[in-house]
Computed example of a mutant assay.
Amino acid sequence: MTVVVTNRALLRVSGADAEVFLQSQLSNDINLLKKGVQLSSFCQHQGKIIALFWVMRSGDDFLLSFPEDLNEKVISRLKMFVIMSDVKIEDISSQYNQIGLINESNSNAYSINENLSLLIDSNELMKKDFSSGYDLWAKACIDYKIPEVFLSSSEKFVPQMLNLDINEIGVNFSKGCYPGQEVVARLHYLGEAKRRLFAFKSDFEMQVGDSLYCSSSKAAKARGNRYKGSGIVVNSVKFNSYFYCIATLDIDLLDREITLNDEHGPILKINNNE
């Protein structure tokens, strides 16, 4: 299946200092990036993720793909750190299509995992008969627990909440410093993530930013109306007759009844059909 992936921005980072610049700003080790997509967090000083990039090499340049509603925020933030470096940041979103490949191979595509890859090509590809069904791509990403950060969820997660530390898929703990690195590393070496990413499904609609509620949790009983939930919906999609999502959740609540937003909300079921 080949799908036009809509609603994603695409930046090109070029210049003699591009690799050094990205290495100093992102959570993953850019020096290890070869062919394929590398997940990497762009964090603020408290370790919260501003944006989660799909990073790709394109010759001597780098491509950053992420949800388009973060475009203005990301560009202005990245440019704050360029200073005197030989780095150019260009928004090329309108010049290229981002094509998602599900269980298909293409020598020019950037592999995300064994089943998903991303093809970056000119707008001429729009003349071809590609599916415009973004829900197919979103469902595939949710099935493989590939997280996203949108404007509404920006600066709400540390990398561990999105499982980016597992097998260092999105965080490298051996590389040099980057914004928020001390906080992220401290949690890794001295603490333990209390909240992780899980997949759920429901008969009812779920929106990014909705909270997960557990009425039997200690926090809910202790805080009453001040209790803000035990997790957040990270990404969601309606597919056929069900709604699917990936969401953060306090690990110790995984076997409890979880509802959406409050104790009267619809029940969320763990989705094990991944």
Rank of each mutant, 00 (worst) to 15 (best):
L70H: 04
S58M: 08
V55R: 11
G265C: 05
L10P: 11
N240H: 06
D69W: 08
N271Y: 13
V237N: 12
N108K: 12
S93D: 08
Q98R: 13
L10Y: 07
D121S: 14
N7L: 01
L64P: 09
A51G: 02
V87A: 07
S65M: 10
N28C: 05
I49Y: 03
S85N: 15
K127I: 04
L268Q: 02
S217C: 14
N108D: 14
K139A: 01
N167S: 11
H45S: 10
N31S: 15
D129N: 15
K156R: 13
M161D: 12
E205K: 12
T259M: 06
N71A: 11
Q38K: 09
L197M: 14
S174L: 12
N240W: 00
V149R: 06
Q38F: 05
S241G: 01
G59K: 10
S107H: 06
L162D: 09
F239Q: 01
C245M: 03
L136Y: 06
M206G: 11
E155S: 10
P147Q: 09
G15P: 03
D86F: 09
D17T: 10
L253E: 08
M1E: 08
F200N: 07
C214N: 15
L187M: 15
N103F: 00
F173E: 03
S122E: 15
Y227M: 09
K79L: 01
E155D: 08
A185N: 08
E90V: 04
D203T: 12
Q95Y: 03
N163E: 08
M161I: 08
L190E: 02
